[in-house]
Amino acid sequence: MTAAPAVVGVIGGGRMGAGIAQSFATAGSAVTIVESDARSAAQALERVATGLRRAAERDRLAEPADRVLGRVTTVASVADLPAHADLVVEAVFEDAGLKAALLAAAEKVVAARTVLASNTSSLSVAELGSALTRPGRFLGMHFFNPVPASELVEIVVAPATGDDTLRSALDWIRCLGKKDVVVKDSPGFASSRLGVALGLEAIRMVESGVAEPEAIDDAMRLGYKHPMGPLRLTDLVGLDVRLAIAEHLHATLGERFAPPRLLRDKVARGELGRKSGQGFYTWE
């Protein structure tokens, strides 16, 4: 079996970044998380530690959680990433300009052989790669939330992505015990495009009074065997995140992805889903 990358950098230590860091550290990688201030760095490490404790409680760790956590460190700047990293994954929020700037900054620090990846769920990988001098070493690596428990990683290949870059990414994803799907760079890729289409239609159904959120979710969960309904999933993803993706798809693919007024209103009121305590459901 191919070994996990020895050294991994993760730019951003939020829920997704911490999950990516946990997954690679569990596979044996030394992981460096970039967070801009001490408080954010401490929160990132606590997210990883909490995830590892939960994995240990479920007997899903092959070694003590503290030992795995010892492979995770934090730095305050992309400039402090290890130059010998095999892989650097950018995992900040969906802002194309910010992502491109961070990836370009990372490219200046790491070796020419280092693979760069973005965890974007909808933005053009080719456009992000246009900020790089070595776009052949870049691709999309779309993880799913929660990263440690999710089985899937969507690998997004831009026209410039090199074959060896793709092979390395596939090997590493399989080392994490996850399944890969490879898609060509296009708006929303495969997963976000289909997932958002279903989620937006469910929101329109609530908006027009067809059914309550729980009834819509039960219809998809029990009738179509989805692990959870589209509205509960929207709450978990974050209504603000779903709105941003919908706006991008609306701009690139047309009116069928126009965000419903109900979604815009909820985001404006701060009803963002689980992270705010209120979305289509009330969360403890």
Results as ranks from 00 to 15, higher is better:
E46A: 15
P82N: 08
A55K: 12
A44M: 06
T50M: 03
R71I: 07
T74D: 08
G51S: 07
D37S: 13
V75L: 05
E46K: 13
A44D: 08
A49G: 07
V78Q: 05
L81M: 08
P82T: 04
L102K: 08
E63M: 13
L103F: 06
V48A: 06
R60T: 04
D80K: 11
V72G: 03
D86S: 12
S40Q: 14
Q43R: 15
V72Y: 04
A79E: 14
D59S: 14
A62S: 14
R47M: 03
A44F: 05
V88L: 03
D80L: 05
L103M: 11
R67C: 10
K99T: 00
L81A: 12
T73Y: 00
D86I: 05
G51A: 07
A42K: 06
A49W: 00
R58V: 10
V75A: 04
L52P: 06
L103W: 06
R54P: 00
L98I: 13
A85T: 13
D95L: 00
D80I: 04
V88Y: 12
G97I: 05
A96D: 04
R53K: 12
A96L: 15
S77K: 09
R39D: 14
E35I: 01
L87T: 11
R54C: 00
A38M: 00
D66T: 10
L61N: 04
T50S: 13
L81V: 13
A83P: 11
L102H: 11
L52N: 09
V48S: 01
A79F: 04
E46C: 02
V78R: 03
R60G: 11
A76P: 02
S77Y: 11
E63W: 05
A91H: 00
G70N: 09
V88T: 09
E63Q: 15
A41D: 08
V72R: 03
R60K: 15
A41K: 05
S36M: 09
V75Y: 08
A56H: 02
R39A: 14
H84M: 04
Q43E: 14
A100W: 02
T50W: 04
R58W: 05
A79G: 12
G97N: 08
R54G: 08
E90R: 01
T74M: 02
H84K: 07
E90M: 01
A65W: 06
P82C: 10
L45M: 09
D95I: 02
E90L: 00
L98M: 10
R60S: 13
V48F: 07
A56Y: 00
A56M: 04
L61P: 09
G51E: 08
E94H: 09
A85M: 02
D37C: 09
A56Q: 14
D80Q: 15
L102I: 11
R47K: 06
D95K: 08
L102Q: 10
V72H: 03
H84A: 15
A91M: 02
D80W: 03
A65I: 11
T74A: 13
V89T: 12
D37H: 14
A56E: 15
E57Y: 02
L102V: 07
L81D: 11
G51D: 12
L103G: 11
P82R: 03
L98P: 01
T74F: 03
R58Y: 06
P64R: 04
L102S: 05
S77C: 07
A56R: 04
L87N: 13
S40P: 00
Q43C: 05
D66H: 06
